[in-house]
């Protein structure tokens, strides 16, 4: 017990980094994902082509590799990020791609008839999107978004590769120093707590949208 209270402060400060990466990525990547997802459903070929290449790159290479490229690679062409900014940039870029694919799927699940019936009621495109399409898409994509959100909690541990001190790294340091697995056990418990909170919030949101089918 004494040992736990000794290492807990460093684990909690690591958790701060993990949460910071998590929240900023969610806050920025979800709206961006909606925009990019909308872009994928347009008929403007150069745009969809460009987006498809972007999504292919982001989903086709490991996030770990992307982190390394952003932090160590981009300076070669004169783009220099601080460690934390580099991590956030890479995470947002990567997660926007996944979110965009999810939103594209959700948008395409809305029947053409919904747009037509809005059109004969003379709603504008924006009104149709806001009042009819987006509420339906949100309900459809919520379970998939939930998956990505949970993944993000755990993926945030990859920031160690560019020298940021997150939860997993804090545990790793203590393990190497004290030659015991206890720090890692605690790290596991903290991750479980974080994902449990996410799961609860997501369940709440799904329930909130269950008043219609």
């Amino acid at each position: 017990m004494h040992y736990v209270s000794q290492i807990l402060p460093s684990l909690i400060s690591g958790t701060g980094m993990t949460l910071s990466i998590f929240f900023w990525t969610i806050i920025i990547a979800i709206p961006l994902g909606i925009l990019v997802g909308l872009g994928m459903t347009t008929n403007f070929k150069p745009l969809t082509w460009l987006i498809n290449i972007y999504v292919w790159l982001m989903r086709g290479t490991p996030l770990l590799l992307q982190l390394i490229f952003v932090f160590y690679g981009l300076p070669i062409i004169g783009v220099v990020f601080q460690r934390y900014d580099a991590a956030l940039f890479a995470f947002i870029l990567n997660y926007t791609a996944y979110f965009a694919e999810i939103f594209r799927g959700g948008l395409q699940a809305i029947p053409e008839g919904q747009y037509e019936s809005a059109r004969v009621l003379r709603l504008t495109n924006w009104q149709t999107l806001r009042k009819i399409v987006i509420p339906q898409v949100v309900k459809i994509v919520l379970p998939s978004i939930g998956n990505e959100v949970i993944n993000l909690v755990k993926d945030s541990s990859l920031v160690y590769v560019i020298g940021l001190g997150d939860l997993l790294r804090a545990g790793n340091v203590a393990m190497a120093r004290d030659v015991t697995l206890i720090p890692m056990l605690l790290v596991g418990v903290i991750y479980l707590l974080l994902t449990a909170v996410c799961t609860l919030v997501l369940k709440r949101m799904e329930k909130h949208y269950s008043y219609w089918r």
Partner: peptide, 19 residues
């Protein structure tokens, strides 16, 4: 093609209020 996310009354009043 009713809007599933809106009540019957909201389905009816959506366009009159917005358009």
């Amino acid at each position: 093609q009713l809007f599933p996310n809106l009540t019957v009354r909201q389905n009816v009043t959506l366009a009159p209020t917005m358009v």
